[in-house]
Design a protein around this nucleic acid. Structure first.
Lengths: 191, 191
DNA sequence: GTCTATATCGCGATAGAC
DNA sequence: GTCTATCGCGATATAGAC
């Protein structure tokens, strides 16, 4: 019953995940979540704008981390390599929270409403990448194209990672980029 | 004020787009949409599951068209080329509905809730592509990776198309795939 | 077609933390 | 005392149930 905002917020996040797993997203009411965290419904809405967002605070942190990582990559590195390096720098943090990530994705994958939100977060990540690429001098067209495509590849790597207990996210990211390059050049040919 | 299902549905779609443009999505109520179409709220929900879906019946048709196109591409064509060909086959239909597409995207781009739904539709398109690639013998990993990535490229082409009055969707799709191959091979290089 | 649950948000009052 | 989080009450509208 601490009054401190951060703790209540944390309890709301954990409780929501638990409830969404126990009963399913649709069968869980915001009142339930608030009750489990020992606060009122109104308080829930001060911390999160809607019923979905409780599960996505992680993504916000990842987005910030990615932005920082992108800024640190040497500006001499070619675009794709820079993005790859930034993505790989996120691996440790991801690997540390594997159990949580697996639990989250289990609920998300069976709940359309949550999947929509997840795609939105992925798009937000893409926007961050696009910004970084623009600052590296890429045209609007190229920056956005590469950002969208690489983000899609990252999403694919992460999905495979949470689904396969024995996989390593860093390896999967590298694999995705490698395969992408291989397919692209062998079938469409770079001039 | 015909009651015939198809006509009412059509009026609901047109009316919703108009209202979303006039007042904005948030300021529009489903009752408003139903009223403008001359039906009740209940009727609205018989045609569409929620407030967003009214704007996305086009996507459903595109998805079907894409599935058909993918099935018709010679199985001898390499994966990426097959997907590109299928995407290009959608160009005429898109070009025919340009004004509508522009109006839709204008509303969607400023409405997070609608953007989420759009991303979901894009993901659904990706699933169709992944299915086709799997049937062509690609591994689960490769099929999904290529599907996600090519779909992202298509999305980028379409966004550019609706934003640029003088662009041609077919050209943009080809350009996206070409640039993708170029970037991939010149910066990460396959072997 | 009617009824209801509940997500979402505005407002004024309250109560810990500094 | 000033913040800031919380509470409690109320209103609207989406979505689904009957």
């Amino acid at each position: 019953m601490p009054r401190s905002g951060a703790e209540a917020r944390d309890r709301l996040e954990r409780g929501a995940l638990e409830l969404y797993i126990e009963r399913g997203y649709d069968q869980t009411t915001i009142a339930d979540i608030a009750a489990r965290a020992g606060v009122t419904q109104r308080t829930y809405f001060r911390h999160f704008p809607d019923k979905r967002e409780v599960l996505f605070s992680v993504e916000s942190r990842q987005q910030q981390a990615l932005a920082d990582a992108l800024a640190e990559v040497a500006s001499s590195a070619p675009p794709l390599a820079a993005v790859l390096q930034a993505f790989r720098s996120m691996a440790p943090a991801l690997e540390d929270n594997r159990p949580l990530a697996v639990a989250r994705h289990r609920v998300i994958s069976v709940t359309p409403a949550l999947r929509e939100r997840e795609l939105m977060k992925e798009a937000a990540l893409g926007a961050v990448v696009a910004d970084a690429l623009r600052q590296r001098g890429l045209s609007e067209w190229s920056a956005t194209l590469l950002a969208q495509v690489t983000t899609a590849a990252l999403g694919h790597a992460i999905h495979t990672w949470v689904a396969d207990r024995n996989s390593d996210i860093n390896d999967l990211i590298v694999q995705a980029f490698t395969d992408l390059g291989e397919f692209a050049s062998s079938h469409l040919g770079p001039r």
